[in-house]
Computed example of a mutant assay.
Amino acid sequence: MNKLIPTQQTREGNLLVSGRDLHEFLEVGTRYDIWFNRMKKYGFVENIDFLLVVQKRSTNNPKNPFTDITDHHIKISMAKEIAMLQRNKKGKEARSYFLELERKWNSPEMVMKRAMDYLNDQVDKLQTSNLLLEQQVNELKPKATYYDMVLQNKSLLSVSKIAKDYGMSAMKLNKLLHELGVQYKQGDIWLLYAKHQDKGYTQTHTHVIDADKSKVQTKWTQKGRLFIYELLKQQGFLPLIEREEYAS
């Protein structure tokens, strides 16, 4: 049978036709909105038997280039009853058409096809969800790995040890921290600028070499190590452990 009236399938598995397409096919002389309101009086319920649809249509009026057109997407069962109510040749033709659509729609082959389509759609959604979850885990994993490593270590660290995390020399890291406004050099020792001194990032100790000679050493706490991590990450510097995670 030729496709007399276009149909569309919903995600819920319902087959719908446009009320305006049906109105046109039945060659109803009454204006569509008046005709459809009359049809509703036969007991059809919105959102159960039909859906209200408002569409934009272009006009020839420059001041109002678009206008709203009311349509209805109606279920085949409703369309079939409306066709019967017409009591004319076009109504009979439409009813036969809808009966044939229902027969094909409810055939075992079509039921199985819809079930497979639904299953494939759910599998696609699940795969997308899993891929998104995997990406989110991988995005968080490098940070968690480095944080875990830092938090497990309670000892003080020399700048050379932290620099090693990034695959750079102590000299380069000290210079970078200076350029980022963290520290400055006073004689042979790097000191923090005042705004960072009370944050608990470093501890300074004096190492006695002999009676006449001593050396001041500044070491970083684990809190300071995490401060450097966050600061350098903003500048695009990642520790080696995270680069390895991203590369894998």
Rank of each mutant, 00 (worst) to 15 (best):
G187D: 12
D148S: 01
S214V: 09
I228R: 08
W190G: 03
D210F: 09
R225K: 01
T145Y: 04
I209Y: 10
K223F: 06
L177H: 07
G181L: 07
M171F: 09
T218D: 08
K185Y: 07
Y146T: 03
D148M: 01
Q222G: 09
D148L: 00
L151T: 14
N153S: 14
M149A: 09
A211H: 15
I228L: 12
G181N: 04
T204E: 08
N153G: 13
L226Q: 06
G181Y: 04
I162W: 06
S169M: 13
G200Q: 14
L157K: 13
V159I: 15
Y229Q: 00
V182W: 03
L173A: 15
Q217L: 15
R225Y: 01
I228S: 08
V182F: 10
M149W: 05
G200A: 12
S169W: 12
T204F: 00
S169A: 13
T145Q: 02
Q197W: 00
S160H: 05
K213P: 04
Q197Y: 01
L156H: 10
K223G: 05
I228K: 09
H205V: 15
R225E: 00
H178N: 14
Q186V: 12
T204Y: 01
S160L: 11
R225N: 01
A170I: 14
L156S: 07
I209N: 07
H205C: 12
D198K: 15
K215V: 13
D210Q: 06
S214G: 07
G200P: 13
Y166S: 04
T204I: 05
Y229E: 00
G167K: 12
M149K: 05
T202N: 00
H207I: 14
K215H: 10
N153T: 13
G181H: 02
S155I: 08
